[in-house]
Amino acid sequence: MITWKIPETRKDLSRFYTGEEECLTALPGESRLDDTAGQLRRIVEALSLTNPDADHLPSLTEQLRGIADELEARTESPSERLTEMWEGDGVARHDPVTGPENTLAPPLVMHVVEDGWVEGEVTLGLPYQGPPAAVHGGVCAALLDAALAVANHRAGNNGMTAKLEISYRRPTPLYRPITVRAKQLRYEGRKRFTIGELVANGEVCASAEGLFIARRTPSGTDG
């Protein structure tokens, strides 16, 4: 396992709700890296939309290698980066579902809505495809796991996923707005019980039930 220095003050994956915040996840557009990750998402999708055309093969390998090499020369070791990316207050920006700095993330931005629910909307393209024209079932699972974690933060107590059960009712469509919503139902000691769903065209495509357990830390429980 990697050795790294855990900072004294550590960011969280989403914001705890104090009654004022509307947005619980990192807001895109706040760092230089957000724009670069956005351009990278664009090219990943553009590549997926190209054609097998003999005269126009998408051969960008050398240009991309050049960019990667330039970046590589400026990187720090993973352990140094780990300390930096978690250091400080507020919300981390590198999550693979909600993080605007992570190319993997659509990113999903989640807001507080009524009755303890949190909600966000995403539209996913070809890089997230499983069956034809549908979002990959694993991507649905990742969206739901992340949304349930945000709902735990909204409720004021989070935890690590212990069990995630997903029921897929119908294919989740690509290139259609998907509403991702979640709510913590209750908690008992270190256990948190949280639900969520993906809704498209007014119909529930997938629903999730999650059990989360708060980590034990020297200063109490923490996610």
């Binding site: 990943v44 190209t50 003999a54 960008l60 991309l64 290698r65 970046l71 590589e72 400026r74 590198h94």
Partner: peptide
């Protein structure tokens, strides 16, 4: 040829996905 180009491009893009999280923001 198309599949080969996509695979080579994706390998470099995957490097960039990773490297973006390893440089100063």
């Amino acid at each position: 040829a198309y599949a080969g180009a996509l695979e080579r491009d994706a390998a470099q893009l995957r490097r960039i996905v990773d490297l973006l999280l390893r440089v100063d923001v």
